[in-house]
Structure formats: structure tokens, C-alpha cells
Amino acid sequence: MTQDQRATARGMISKGDPSRSPAQQRDDFDAVFGALPLGDDVTLEPRSLGGVPALDVKVAGAEGDGVILYLHGGGYVIGSARTGANLAAPLARRTGLQAVSLDYRLAPEAAFPAAVDDALAAYKELLEGGREIFVAGDSAGGGLALALVLAARREGLPLPPAVVVFSPWADLTLSGASMDTRGDFDPLFSRAHMEAYVDHYLAGHDPKDELASPLLADLTGLPPLLIQVGTAEVLLDDSLRLAAHAAEYEVDVSLDVVAGAPHVYQYNVGLMDEADAALTRAAAWLTQRGFGGAVA
């Protein structure tokens, strides 16, 4: 990325005060990411999916039989289906698949396992439609995507054919070395931020629960997994260790690391070359497996 692009990306984000209330943090996040332009070819339509509010992210020409279930990031405390649409839309555009972004319940009002329950309910309804479903998510939504697959496996449900996660938060025990060694490089988070999110979401529940920390789970039988991460983030080791752990369980895993890129740098699509390239690679990874076909 150019220096100007790096400055633009960093200018969109900054380390907030982790002591601010969830409501204040949501307002801050929505002010930056809640109304980013999606493109003239995108229409958002509210719907219910398994009793959970969601948005159909309709991209002109993306009419493939498969569907992307997108799970937004935000530490299980902030974010929304609308912020998730910022990444669901370019994925749909590049794959030709339809997409839906889920408004799962947030903590602390709805603590663990509410988000997992909502994602599973939505997934079950999509399964009833008979279409191929693949799951994608960023940050906490990336961890939730993995938790959803584990929950589906536990219930004996068909698993998605592929999973894509951007900078996944997969270890709520916060044991990765980068939680401390990358704190000065990460323009968005520090250990204090992640500890606050853990407190809100788990509300005292064991962080070693596999549905809270999929990194610690038995990953036997998981579908092909694509992980994308930047090096300028405290969650770097979640991705590195997740890839190694998945490989130990014979999961088909691909790891994509971009030097100097911040947390979920894909949000900077149209502003940062690496963001556009990463989303294009993610779409190609899916289409190589027989899902979708780019429309633009």
C-alpha cells in the first residue's frame, strides 16, 4: 500500500476508550462505518432469518444459487448487519453469490452464547432453503463463524462448504503473544480493549469454551478455511495459531498475511490496494472450489 493509502486507512480508525459504555462505542463505530457507500448496484432489504433480524445484501447480477451468511465484527458488543454489509457486498459482487448480513444480539444485553444461538438459528433457516451456504465474518464475526460451524457439527447439521474469516478473534483467553507485542502497532485495539469485550460478552463464562474460543477446539471435519490478517494488529496470533491448529486436524486451510495492514483492512475497499486485492483473492478462493462466479 502507498503511504497515502496507509494514512487514509489509519485516519478512519483510532484506539477508543475501552471504558466508554457499549452504547457510546456503538455510536462511535456507526459514525465511521454505519453508512459507508456500498455502490449503486447494492440494495439492502430487511428480513428475519431464524427469528433474527438481518439484511439481504442484493448486488445487481449476483444471482447465484449459493448464499453468503455474513457475521459482522465488533467484539460481540458493537457493529450491526449494516456494518457487516460493507464486506458482504464486495464479496457478493466478486463471487456472484447472494449475501445476507445478520444482526445477531450483542453483549452485554445478550451475553454468551446469544450470538452463537442467533447465528445457528439463521443457518438452520438457510439450510431449509436447500441452497449451498458458506459463512464469512470479520473479527468477532470471524470467531462467531467458526463457533457456528462447531455448533452445527455438534447438532449433526450439514456444514458449510467453505468458511472465510478476516482477522478472526478466535481466542477469548487472550493468550496470543501479539496481544501485547503488537499493541503499539495496532491503531485500533489493545489488550485493554479486548479484555473489556471479553467481560461484556462472556459475563464470567469460561473463555475456554470451544464456542467462545474456537482456536482451542477439536477442528476435526471442518470445511476448507481461508484466513486473512494484517500484521499491525493484536489479533495477529489468533490467525497464525488458528491456521496451524486447523492444519493439525487435517483441515484444508489457507492463510493470507499482509505486512503492515491493520485489523480487518478489507474495510478499506476502494481506498487501499491491499483491501481490494484481498477481497478478490477471497472470491477467487471460493470460485476455485466451485462456488459462485464474479459478476464485476
Rank of each mutant, 00 (worst) to 15 (best):
D237P: 02
M179T: 05
V251Y: 05
D103A: 14
G230H: 04
G11S: 14
P168Q: 09
A296T: 14
M272F: 09
V198K: 15
I133Q: 12
I78H: 04
R153G: 03
P160I: 10
V163M: 01
G290V: 00
P161V: 06
E128R: 12
V67A: 06
A9L: 13
P158W: 10
L255M: 10
A246C: 09
D252E: 10
V164W: 03
A121Q: 02
S213N: 10
L55C: 02
A192C: 08
D27C: 07
V116N: 00
D184K: 10
A196R: 15
V229A: 09
N86W: 00
I133A: 07
G221S: 11
L97S: 09
A294Y: 08
S167Q: 07
A196P: 01
T287A: 08
P207M: 15
L87H: 02
H72I: 13
D256S: 09
T280N: 07
Y267D: 04
T173P: 00
P18R: 13
V165G: 01
L157V: 02
D4T: 15
R105L: 15
L157N: 08
A212D: 08
L55P: 00
E109Q: 14
V32W: 12
L69N: 02
T8H: 11
P161S: 14
L148T: 07
L242H: 06
R191K: 09
S80L: 10
A217K: 01
K208C: 12
L216H: 01
R94Q: 12
A151Q: 06
K58S: 14
G96L: 00
P223S: 12
A261R: 00
G156R: 13
G64I: 01
T280L: 04
P161F: 06
A115N: 04
G230W: 03
G79W: 12
A114L: 14
A162R: 07
W169P: 01
G176N: 01
G74H: 06
S14A: 15
D118P: 02
P37R: 15
F166R: 05
D56L: 13
V253E: 03
Q288I: 06
R191E: 07
D30R: 13
D118F: 09
L148I: 05
D237A: 01
A81F: 05
L236H: 04
G260N: 03
M12C: 07
P224L: 03
W285N: 00
R154H: 13
V59E: 06
A140M: 11
D252R: 00
T95D: 06
G129A: 10
P108R: 15
L106P: 00
E128T: 09
V100R: 01
G73W: 02
A81R: 01
D238S: 05
G61Y: 08
H245I: 12
T287G: 03
L102I: 14
E210W: 08
V234F: 04
A140W: 03
L202F: 14
I227F: 08
D238F: 04
I227A: 08
L106K: 05
P187D: 12
A261I: 04
P37D: 15
A196F: 12
K124P: 00
S139D: 08
L242Y: 08
P108T: 13
V163I: 13
R191Q: 06
F185Q: 10
A31Q: 09
S80Y: 09
